[in-house]
Design a protein around this nucleic acid. Structure first.
Lengths: 203, 203, 203, 203
DNA sequence: CATGAATGAGTGTTCATTCAT
DNA sequence: AATGAATGAACACTCATTCAT
């Protein structure tokens, strides 16, 4: 596989391919939001994406693969988002870090809560390569928390602690966006989540 | 044609109907676990349930309704399970109550974790009547927690607190069963969850 | 099966049977007019008729038989109607007779033109026992026309003449009710039909 | 319409599509005549037409649409047939024209009387685009009759006259083919029809 | 590589009919 | 005779996938 000698120009094929893939995934999202997953057919995906059905099968072996890719993209977007927030606060004190984590996740969920919910409840996604939300975040959170390991008194098992924090942050931010009780503001829910995680970490 | 001596009319309606519905839902579960949701066809459901396809449509307007009912039944089972555990500990101190809550949820999830995961990730739900897990538990948890309201110093908003506890217990017990890191025992995960919830409630 | 010794009372069985049959046929009509023949199912017929589906099959061997009976009843109603008009004018001059025939048929069609049209275009009816409209009228018209045979100069073959008159009266009255051009009143169409038939009979 | 001599791209669209549609309609006719409409299933249509069931649904939204198209084609065939006969006799005297009209219709009905009858009595029609036989002929007949308007003494309303003639020709030719009394030849029935229409037009 | 017409196995669903009560 | 739950053969229709162009 020869690399481009000069490395200046991107191979147009790769670029076009990525564009097409993106168009297809965008189309799936659009259709899901408009009419539910029941309306998602490969032919409709192709039509909405503005490509031929043949091209869809150029990039995806079958329909299932499209859903998996959609999940992957969605999770990766959030992951990128969260990681970037986390590095910002690499040097912050623990509470600030926790607040940043919660805020990042809430923001991530708030981008398109409806779609997130649909992806989680309606779109089949159990498959290799698409590990769950919380699992994907494990790595990012581990790094961030490890930096504060000494502050954590009761932390005997870092992996366990990271696991717990990840689950809590994921669930509480998801819940804050989509299921908080009426009368509770998003900010209040956020603060409460920060409080909960902090309390846990403090021991 | 023997009429029953006392009873004027046979009335197998309610009983038979419920039996049939149960048989159908059991059949769906069986098929899902055997061959995945991809293999779930209405005719197969009928066959496995030992009823005619026509009878399936006597009780469910369409395939989707079967899935919804399956979710409902599953969630209700867990709810019943959790509630019964909760009433057992109506008079217990807070920490014991929290441990009971976590244990109940972990046990509930552990009954058939595979099925639970499949129901959540592969089977389309999202429809009236199938509110989320955590939402169903809200009521049960609220009752249990309200009894300890005085002990909760930092509790300004009971609903918010209940919401938080529900989310945490649900996520942590679900995670403990299905996503705990390797090397962490179920019991350790349980204890950690109890610790986390207690820490939050303590303020 | 003993007949009623005195013969005073109608056998309730016969009466009930006829009532049920009528209720079934009425139900079919009702459903057809409400939702089209596409909506006509035996179970719905039973429901609308207020009898059990089992009772429907007590009186009709299958669905087709119901349609045939419906046609038969409809045609017989019209036939009775026309015949009674015809006997009124048994002694009238030819033109009056023709006018009476046309009027009778127009009135018959006008009773429920919509249903008539539906019966003819949507409801399958080719079967023994359900000869066509015009054929059923042949006998009635034959009698009426035969009385005026001597007036008919050009009438070499009475059957042919009756056939022609029947076709014309049927088609023209049906058309007058359902297809006359805009701007033409029903009465004008009637008169024109009378003129046409008279012209034919006059030779 | 072969544009490019070299032929850069095949464009079988229009032609192939029409061929397929014709094949489907022919298949329906074939099945109806063989086994009755009861035997007409979409899959059988596809099989007999030599196309896949998927292709059937490429051209028709549902089964009903196939029947409608079949009616349309049938009526259009007859219309074309009649019109061509009519233009042949554009300059003929009235009686000859009437004879031509009757003959055209009789011939049209006689092409396949069985199918015609089945289409009319067994196949659901009645939908936009499938106006009745007589209505379709109205235009053709109007043109033909208008040319002789001066000869028609008693014709006050051309539309009414055309309506009457259309109804009569349709009914009498249809009846001549399918319902003439035994002992009456087709030719005799034709002549009688010509006589009837002529008598009407003469006033 | 792209296209999109064609495919056809497979599915959900209906509904005429039966028969135990 | 009446009932109506149950039946299941049969059907209309979909849609993932292919492949000739």
């Amino acid at each position: 596989m020869k690399r481009d000698p000069k490395g200046k120009r991107r191979r147009p094929r790769q670029t076009r391919a990525r564009q097409t893939v993106e168009a297809i995934l965008d189309a799936v999202m659009k259709v899901i939001k408009h009419d539910g997953i029941g309306a998602v057919t490969t032919n409709l995906i192709a039509e909405v994406a503005g490509v031929s059905i043949g091209s869809v099968y150029q990039y995806f072996p079958d329909k299932r693969a499209i859903f998996i890719a959609l999940h992957q993209r969605h999770v990766e977007q959030i992951e990128r988002f969260v990681v970037s927030k986390l590095v910002e606060h690499a040097a912050s004190p623990l509470v600030v870090l926790v607040r940043a984590m919660v805020e990042a996740m809430v923001d991530a969920h708030a981008i398109d809560p409806e779609l997130h919910e649909l992806l989680m409840t309606e779109v089949p996604h159990r498959a290799e390569g698409t590990r769950d939300f919380a699992v994907r975040l494990h790595g990012a959170f581990r790094l961030a928390i490890a930096a504060h390991a000494r502050e954590l008194k009761a932390c005997r098992d870092l992996d366990l602690t990271v696991f717990m924090v990840t689950q809590m942050v994921d669930a509480l931010s998801h819940g804050a966006v989509l299921r908080r009780p009426p009368g509770v503001t998003l900010n209040a829910a956020k603060e409460e989540a920060v409080r909960a995680v902090s309390a846990y970490l403090r021991g």
